[in-house]
């Protein structure tokens, strides 16, 4: 089978997953200026929770939604009771979220052990479509479909609703948003919950393909970080474009220059930081 096609399909799949992961990361960073280093943990813990829901007999999509809901609650608690106390102190927030990510990683090791878990693909999405000798695994395509559906839903929420406009107003100018009566702190909680839920959802959706193992969090977080820096903090189109760029760079980089995989990923990030610190679509510099 054509190697290039496999790489391209893998790239698009990873791009879709990265978008689900980094959309929330981007909104949280753009609105709240919080570099949430536990975002990879939401992804991994969400994936583990999903595997447990699956083991308890949930269907695949109900398990993904249940995991997303649990992670929304956890995210809300972290924001309300911990991050809220550190408002405006970015270094303290970085350290707090980093610390929590270590705690979650250790807790996951305790609960789910160190053995990789690979949930099975939902039954009706197994197999592949074969067209003129080319093989398209159905589940990979489904991931892309889900990511696109989610991108449209998020775009409608952020771009077409009053709440969305309020969130964007908060990204533009948070103090003035408060002065015109927007309850920015409630929006913060909402966005944080949403971001955590999306990351968990991505974790469950990605798990049959990536499998779940200790260290998955630390693998996903830098990717989300690069996506958001490339695309621009707070920008959904930026996160979408950045996700697919990184999806392609990651897969093609590993296949063609395996020794330089991280160089290929991080050089664009460094260039963007130096030449265009607000990212491709962003408005605020990091």
């Amino acid at each position: 089978m054509n190697l290039w096609l496999v790489l391209a399909i893998n790239s698009i799949t990873l791009g879709g997953l990265l978008f689900l992961l980094s959309a929330g990361f981007s909104l949280i960073f753009g609105l709240m200026r919080i570099p949430n280093l536990m975002h990879g943990s939401f992804f991994m813990l969400g994936a583990y929770m999903g595997s447990t829901f699956l083991a308890k007999g949930f269907g695949f999509w109900p398990a993904a939604l249940a995991s997303a809901a649990s992670m929304a609650v956890l995210g809300g608690l972290v924001e309300r009771f911990l991050l809220r106390r550190l408002a405006g102190q970015e270094l303290a927030q970085v350290l707090l979220t980093l610390g929590l990510s270590f705690i979650i990683a250790d807790a996951c090791l305790m609960v789910w052990t160190g053995d990789p878990i690979q949930p099975s693909t939902p039954p009706d999405l197994r197999g592949a479509i074969i067209r003129s000798g080319l093989v398209f695994p159905i589940y990979r395509l489904a991931i892309v479909g889900v990511a696109i559906a989610m991108a449209i839903a998020l775009w409608l929420l952020i771009d077409k609703t009053r709440i969305g406009a309020m969130i964007r107003a908060g990204v533009d100018d948070a103090p003035i948003a408060r002065v015109v009566g927007i309850k920015v702190s409630q929006l913060f909680t909402l966005v944080f919950c949403l971001g955590a839920a999306l990351a968990a959802f991505a974790g469950v959706v990605g798990s049959p393909y990536l499998s779940i193992y200790p260290g998955l969090d630390a693998e996903m977080l830098p990717l989300a970080l690069i996506v958001v820096i490339l695309g621009g903090a707070g920008s959904l189109p930026g996160a979408l474009l950045g996700s697919f760029i990184i999806g392609f760079l990651y897969n093609f980089g590993q296949a063609m220059f395996p020794d330089l995989a991280y160089v290929i990923l991080f050089v664009p990030m460094v260039l963007v930081l130096v030449l265009r610190p607000q990212g491709l679509f962003g408005r605020v510099a990091l």
Partner: peptide, 14 residues
């Protein structure tokens, strides 16, 4: 003003 919002949205959010 909220630069990345439309005129209408600037008014709606307030």
């Amino acid at each position: 003003i909220f630069r990345s919002l439309t005129v209408r949205e600037n008014l709606v959010v307030a």
